[in-house]
C-alpha cells in the first residue's frame, strides 16, 4: 500500500496551503473594513454643522457664507446646541481662523470640516455732498443696503422728492425736513437724486451709508464622539 502512505505528506501540504490562504484572506478583509471605518457619525455631524452654520438662513450669517462679525463673537456653547441640534451629545469645537469660538469637551482627533467664509461688518460713513443747481444728485462711493438721509433745507426751499436710481424712495408735497431711512439695492451702485425748489447750500443734506467691510476667514468645525 504505497499510495496510502504518499497521501500523508500531501495532506500536510494541503492543510498548510489552505491555512495560509485563510490567513491572507482575513488580513485582506480586515484591511478593507479598517479603510471603511471613518467614524461616520462624527463626519455626518461635522459636515451638517458646517453646512448649517454657513447657510443663508443660519442665525450667524448675513447671507450665504458671509458671517456677521458681531453675532459670531457672541456665539457660545448653549446657543450653538440650541440652534444646531445636530451636535447634541457630541464633543465639538468651532474655530474662526485661529480663534476658538466655542469648544465643548475634547474634540482633538475628531473629524474636521473647513469652510471658506467672509466675516462682514457694517460701519456708518457720513457724506456731505455739495450741490450746484436745484436738481442735486449724489452717488454713493460704495454699495450699501440702506442709507440715512438728513435733509435740512434753508428757509424758503423745499425738497419734495428723493430718488434712488430713478426710483422714488421719499416723497412729501409739503417738503422733506428731517432724517429719513431709505432702502437701497445691494447689487447696484446707487445715485440719489433730490428734487429741490432752489439750489441747496452745502451742509443742508447729509447722507450716512453703511458699506460692508469683509475679511476672509476659514471656519473650522471639529466633531468628536
Amino acid at each position: 500500500m504505497r499510495r496510502a502512505q504518499a497521501n500523508l505528506p500531501a495532506l500536510v501540504v494541503a492543510l498548510l496551503v489552505v491555512s495560509t490562504a485563510i490567513g491572507m484572506s482575513l488580513a485582506l478583509a480586515d484591511g478593507a473594513f479598517a479603510g471603511a471605518t471613518r467614524s461616520p457619525g462624527d463626519r455626518r455631524a461635522a459636515v451638517a454643522l458646517s453646512e448649517r452654520l454657513v447657510s443663508a438662513d443660519s442665525p450667524v450669517t448675513v447671507r450665504k457664507n458671509v458671517l456677521n462679525r458681531t453675532i459670531v463673537a457672541r456665539l457660545n456653547a448653549s446657543s450653538l446646541r440650541r440652534g444646531f441640534p445636530v451636535v447634541a451629545g457630541h464633543d465639538f469645537s468651532v474655530r474662526l481662523g485661529n480663534r476658538t469660538l466655542v469648544s465643548v469637551g475634547d474634540s482633538t482627533g475628531g473629524v474636521t470640516m473647513r469652510r471658506i467664509v467672509l466675516v462682514a461688518q457694517r460701519q456708518p460713513v457720513e457724506l456731505t455732498p455739495r450741490f450746484t443747481g436745484p436738481n442735486a444728485t449724489v452717488t454713493l462711493p460704495r454699495r450699501s443696503r440702506r442709507a440715512d438721509l438728513t435733509i435740512h433745507p434753508p428757509a424758503g426751499t423745499t425738497v419734495r422728492t428723493v430718488r434712488a436710481n430713478g426710483r422714488v424712495v421719499r416723497y412729501d408735497p409739503a417738503g422733506l425736513d428731517g432724517t429719513y431711512r431709505v432702502r437701497l439695492a445691494r447689487l447696484e451702485t446707487t445715485t440719489l437724486a433730490l428734487n429741490a425748489s432752489a439750489s441747496l447750500p452745502a451742509g443742508s443734506v447729509t447722507v450716512t451709508y453703511y458699506p460692508e467691510r469683509t475679511t476672509k476667514a476659514t471656519l473650522v468645525v471639529t466633531v468628536d464622539g
Binding site: N7, A14, V18, A21, M24, S25
Partner: peptide, 18 residues
C-alpha cells in the same frame, strides 16, 4: 493527490469570499 486538488478548490472558494 485528491487532497491537494481539494485544497486548491478550497483556496478558490476562500478567495472568492475575500
Amino acid at each position: 493527490s485528491t487532497t491537494v486538488v481539494e485544497a486548491a478548490v478550497g483556496i478558490l472558494l476562500i478567495f472568492a469570499v475575500t
